[in-house]
Amino acid sequence: LDRAREQGLALTGEKGLLGQLTKMVLESALEGEITDHLGYEKHERSGSASNARNGSRTKTVLTDIGPVPIEVPRDRDGSFQPQIVRKHQRRLTGVDELVLSLSARGLTHGDISAHLA
């Protein structure tokens, strides 16, 4: 937080520290969800599975701190149904407080993603 203040980075608002942290946590959680869905880690061979990762799409979700652009992973056959940010969902409430609370306790964004999952 002190480093962010020194660099003139705001806590909230567009490109604010809390928005960036929320983006990292949501994207990590979505990557975890698609890994569970497909059954293999990113950059691993899928083996005999016919479904595979197929890039991502940009989506902007509205949070209590403002709009947060995120990258939502896709799969080839379109069967991936994300849970943390569902399809067609545009508004997230309560995630900001949870992310801020958990990061204040010293958890990494990977730990927070695992907790959300």
Rank of each mutant, 00 (worst) to 15 (best):
L1W: 04
R3N: 04
R3H: 05
Q7E: 15
Q7A: 15
G8I: 13
L9S: 12
A10C: 12
L11T: 10
L11Y: 15
G19L: 13
Q20A: 08
L21A: 15
T22L: 15
K23W: 06
K23Y: 00
M24R: 06
V25C: 13
L26N: 05
A29E: 02
L30Q: 05
L30E: 11
E31I: 04
G32N: 05
T35F: 08
T35N: 12
D36C: 10
L38T: 13
G39M: 06
G39R: 03
Y40T: 09
E41Q: 15
K42W: 11
K42Q: 07
E44S: 09
E44W: 02
R45T: 09
S46T: 13
S48Q: 00
A49P: 02
A49L: 14
A49R: 13
N51H: 09
A52R: 14
R53I: 01
G55T: 05
R57D: 03
K59Q: 15
K59I: 06
T63R: 06
T63H: 08
T63K: 00
I65M: 08
G66E: 15
P67Q: 11
V68M: 02
V68H: 02
V68A: 01
V68P: 08
P69G: 08
P69T: 00
P69Y: 12
E71H: 09
E71R: 04
R74Q: 09
F80Q: 03
F80H: 02
Q81V: 12
Q81I: 03
Q81D: 02
P82H: 01
Q83I: 02
I84E: 05
V85L: 08
V85A: 04
R86H: 02
Q89M: 07
G94C: 12
G94Y: 09
D96H: 08
D96V: 15
D96R: 03
D96G: 15
E97D: 14
L98P: 03
V99T: 14
V99R: 03
L100W: 09
S101P: 07
S101A: 04
S101G: 07
S103I: 03
S103H: 13
S103Q: 09
A104F: 10
G106N: 00
T108N: 03
T108Y: 10
H109D: 04
G110Q: 05
G110C: 10
D111W: 00
S113P: 01
S113Q: 00
H115Q: 03
A117F: 12
